[in-house]
Amino acid sequence: MSPAEVTSTGSRGTRVIGSIVLAGIVFHVLLSFVWSDPDADQGDLVRIMYVHVPSAWLAYMAFTVTAFGGVMYLWKRSLWWDLVAGASAEIGVVFCALALVTGSIWGRPTWGTYWEWTDVRIVTTLVLLLLYIGYLAVRRIPADPHQRSRRAAVVGIIAALNIPIVRFSVDWWADRTLHQKATIKLGGTELDGLMLFALFFGLILFTLIYAWMMIHRFRIAWLDEQIDRHGLDAAIAERLAESTSDVTRAVGLTKTGADL
């Protein structure tokens, strides 16, 4: 395809990933609802886990990519890394919100409340979500690209440094109630083979979704950058052309005036 024919941020790569993802979603639904049995403890509610756990996992992975992109930006000073970091953060926020919502829906029949303050994961995830909403807000502040990238890199790295601190402090904070450890047993011997497989398949599927979104989101960020850089140039050039003709006309007029 020549550049002139490109009309979208899709490409052969995204179309291949997209097709695999679509087939994978069908497979994952069958796996989660038809082929796998209810859990001995959680019953059918375990089926929420097949989307909840991958969402949470992808949120953490996306935020790690953001921090890595920030470090790489500060090292290489290449806008490419900054755009990767920004794209990943936005997708991470989407997955993070999904993890919170699904966790909360799972919690209602399990704990009897949508929000359980003593559950470390859900509280930590909410703080994370807020941290990265702040990160995205910093990116939206109009600024010179490199100025924006520097700020974003610092905020992204602090946010990532905060993940273990938040996690640890919330863990400790919630520890005074002892019932929480028993609420969920995932991994290990508690899940039978097919359930474990559904969980891992979900992780792979969501990782592919993340990859597909990353490619599109990165290209959008790139195009935005191009518009910022060249759109203004084009507008100035256009305006200059206009005003030059104005000046010529004005000069012409003066000349006529002088002639009189």
Binding site: V127, L130, A137, V138, N162, V166
Partner: peptide
């Protein structure tokens, strides 16, 4: 922008 950045970081 300052509170939205600072307060989550200071949660711990």
């Amino acid at each position: 922008i300052l509170p939205i950045l600072l307060l989550p970081v200071l949660a711990p």
